[in-house]
Deep mutational scan, measured.
Amino acid sequence: SEEEIREAFRVFDKDGNGYISAADLRHVMTNLGEKLTDEEVDEMIREADIDGDGQVNYEDFVQMMTA
């Protein structure tokens, strides 16, 4: 549901600035027990970053979650 997606976005957007940065993503993945290299984190950001601004905004996140 849209509310679940919004809630998930809030979990990833640690600093609440409306964007998921590589640092935000790394933090959440580490908490989930996933040890990722910087390259892996950057690749995840690139794949999710639809508009190419280097971070994942809510619209990018929705597209990723509903793809």
Results as ranks from 00 to 15, higher is better:
residue 1 S to K: 13
residue 1 S to T: 14
residue 1 S to R: 14
residue 1 S to G: 06
residue 2 E to V: 13
residue 2 E to Y: 13
residue 2 E to G: 08
residue 2 E to I: 15
residue 3 E to Y: 10
residue 4 E to M: 15
residue 4 E to F: 11
residue 4 E to P: 03
residue 5 I to W: 15
residue 5 I to E: 00
residue 5 I to Y: 12
residue 6 R to V: 04
residue 6 R to C: 05
residue 6 R to S: 02
residue 7 E to S: 07
residue 7 E to M: 09
residue 7 E to R: 07
residue 8 A to V: 04
residue 9 F to M: 05
residue 9 F to D: 00
residue 9 F to P: 00
residue 10 R to Q: 07
residue 10 R to I: 04
residue 10 R to D: 02
residue 10 R to C: 04
residue 11 V to G: 04
residue 11 V to W: 08
residue 11 V to R: 13
residue 12 F to H: 06
residue 12 F to Q: 02
residue 12 F to C: 04
residue 14 K to V: 12
residue 14 K to Y: 14
residue 16 G to I: 02
residue 16 G to C: 08
residue 17 N to Q: 08
residue 17 N to D: 06
residue 18 G to D: 01
residue 18 G to S: 02
residue 18 G to P: 00
residue 20 I to Y: 00
residue 20 I to H: 00
residue 21 S to Y: 05
residue 21 S to L: 09
residue 21 S to R: 05
residue 21 S to K: 09
residue 22 A to R: 08
residue 23 A to E: 12
residue 24 D to E: 08
residue 24 D to H: 04
residue 25 L to M: 04
residue 25 L to K: 00
residue 25 L to P: 00
residue 25 L to H: 00
residue 26 R to W: 11
residue 26 R to I: 11
residue 26 R to S: 05
residue 26 R to V: 14
residue 27 H to Y: 14
residue 28 V to W: 04
residue 28 V to S: 01
residue 28 V to T: 02
residue 28 V to D: 00
residue 29 M to G: 00
residue 30 T to R: 14
residue 30 T to Y: 11
residue 30 T to L: 15
residue 31 N to D: 05
residue 31 N to I: 14
residue 31 N to Q: 14
residue 31 N to P: 01
residue 32 L to S: 03
residue 33 G to D: 10
residue 34 E to K: 15
residue 36 L to F: 15
residue 36 L to I: 08
residue 36 L to S: 03
residue 36 L to R: 13
residue 37 T to R: 06
residue 37 T to Q: 04
residue 37 T to H: 04
residue 38 D to N: 12
residue 38 D to M: 14
residue 39 E to P: 05
residue 39 E to W: 12
residue 39 E to T: 08
residue 39 E to D: 10
residue 40 E to Y: 05
residue 40 E to A: 10
residue 40 E to M: 12
residue 41 V to Q: 03
residue 42 D to T: 10
residue 42 D to N: 11
residue 42 D to P: 01
residue 43 E to Q: 15
residue 43 E to I: 15
residue 43 E to A: 15
residue 43 E to T: 11
residue 44 M to D: 00
residue 44 M to L: 10
residue 44 M to F: 09
residue 45 I to C: 04
residue 45 I to A: 03
residue 45 I to E: 01
residue 46 R to Y: 05
residue 46 R to T: 05
residue 47 E to N: 15
residue 48 A to W: 08
residue 49 D to Q: 14
residue 49 D to R: 14
residue 50 I to K: 14
residue 50 I to N: 05
residue 50 I to L: 09
residue 51 D to R: 13
residue 51 D to H: 13
residue 52 G to A: 13
residue 52 G to K: 10
residue 53 D to L: 08
residue 53 D to M: 13
residue 54 G to K: 03
residue 54 G to N: 06
residue 55 Q to K: 12
residue 56 V to F: 08
residue 56 V to D: 00
residue 57 N to A: 13
residue 57 N to T: 07
residue 58 Y to W: 12
residue 58 Y to K: 01
residue 58 Y to R: 01
residue 58 Y to M: 05
residue 58 Y to I: 14
residue 59 E to W: 07
residue 59 E to S: 06
residue 60 D to K: 15
residue 61 F to T: 01
residue 61 F to R: 00
residue 61 F to L: 09
residue 62 V to A: 03
residue 62 V to T: 03
residue 62 V to K: 03
residue 62 V to R: 03
residue 63 Q to W: 07
residue 63 Q to N: 08
residue 63 Q to G: 07
residue 63 Q to T: 13
residue 64 M to G: 03
residue 64 M to Q: 06
residue 65 M to A: 03
residue 65 M to D: 01
residue 65 M to T: 02
residue 66 T to P: 03
residue 66 T to E: 04
residue 67 A to K: 13
residue 67 A to W: 01
residue 67 A to H: 10
